[in-house]
């Protein structure tokens, strides 16, 4: 541990789709070594994947710059990323999925962007060779987040990224949102760029997943959109749903009321039940929104909701010299 800190720390969270990690390491370490940057690899995984990480331990014993971190099963990928970032010694981090996404040549290109001033550079897998379903899913995601990216990012979910360490420390990351790190960093005002990178031949076979995977991703995206748009104003979301539902319910009640005036009996009309149900649902939604607003209001003083570009500690004018 006594050697000077490396230029780059490559973080590999081993959570899914395991491949041969030694092959991954060899392939991605080569261009880094060629570029003359000193580096270390940090593999974070669960005890479950020891059969994959043990060969890395042997490589480390031979003197390769590899460190292994193990966390309990059930710790999220986001937490693994934060764990690895906390123990990383390089000023610049690279995140790499534990499987082949892009060619290894992407790494020096991404690092060059960060060294040139970007806070985060993400690979854009292009040209894309993927199944129609996956491409469609990607298009829909970017349609939704276009408001934040301004259409400038094309592959926010790509796991191959280079970033300054501060980004991981300052972007509020939790749950499953590490997947969308470039997007969240952009929202915090960091300079995010993308670099076109060819897809790795190992990732070329077009993959279609089970419906469960797509459902989980859909839930992730809905959660993300809510997080991005409404966390500071939950009543705008729940209030809109609530007023639409209650409004429909109220119109139905009004119709029934006029029919009653016309002499019709209401006691056996199922429409009455639906009208009441809609009103009740609407009121519930608004009440939930109010609880949300209450939490936002009560915590408003605890965290500043903006980030400054020039830190206020720096004097506005140079000290008299």
């Amino acid at each position: 541990m006594s050697e000077s800190s490396p230029d780059v720390t490559v973080i590999v969270p081993v959570v899914e789709r395991p491949t041969s990690l030694t092959a991954l390491y060899r392939e991605f370490a080569a261009p880094l070594r060629q570029s003359g940057r000193s580096f270390e690899f940090v593999f974070v995984s669960y005890p479950w994947f020891r059969h994959l990480t043990d060969p890395l331990g042997e490589l480390a014993a031979q003197g390769e710059p590899i460190r292994l971190i193990e966390a309990m099963q059930g710790v999220s990928e986001t937490a693994l990323l934060k764990l690895a970032a906390a123990s990383a010694r390089g000023a610049v981090l690279v995140t790499l999925p534990a499987y082949f996404q892009t060619e290894a040549s992407a790494i020096p290109a991404l690092l060059a962007r960060v060294e040139a001033g970007a806070d985060l550079a993400v690979a854009w897998r292009w040209p894309r060779r993927d199944s129609l379903v996956n491409r469609l899913q990607n298009r829909v995601l970017h349609l939704f987040v276009g408001g934040i990216t301004g259409g400038r990012l094309h592959d926010v979910a790509c796991g191959v990224r280079a970033l300054r360490r501060e980004v991981v420390q300052e972007v509020p990351l939790y749950g499953e949102f590490a997947r969308f790190l470039p997007l969240l960093a952009m929202r915090e005002g960091f300079a995010v760029e993308e670099v076109q990178s060819p897809v790795h031949p190992g990732a070329m076979r077009s993959r279609v997943y089970g419906p469960g995977v797509y459902l989980r991703r859909l839930i992730d995206v809905v959660g993300l959109l809510f997080l991005l748009k409404f966390t500071d104003k939950p009543l705008r979301f729940f209030g809109l749903i609530g007023s639409v539902l209650s409004g429909i319910g109220a119109i139905m009640l009004a119709v029934l009321f006029f029919q009653r005036l016309a002499g019709e009996s209401l006691a056996s009309r199922p429409m009455l039940l639906l009208a009441v149900l809609l009103m009740v649902l609407g009121i519930q939604s608004v009440a939930l929104g109010l609880i949300g607003e209450m939490i936002v209001h009560l915590t408003a003083s605890q965290r500043s909701r903006y980030r400054l570009r020039t830190s206020p500690a720096r004097p506005a004018r140079p000290e008299a010299a």
């Binding site: 960091f190 909701r305 903006y306 400054l308 020039t310 506005a316 004018r317």
Partner: peptide, 28 residues
């Protein structure tokens, strides 16, 4: 600010809207 020390620039990292811009000013 360089011409007059009484002027202090505060630069937000992105466009946050007027409410947070004012709050940033209040904080500084």
């Amino acid at each position: 600010a360089a011409a007059d020390p009484r002027v202090r620039p505060v630069e937000l990292a992105r466009n946050y809207g007027q409410t947070l811009a004012m709050q940033a000013g209040f904080d500084q």
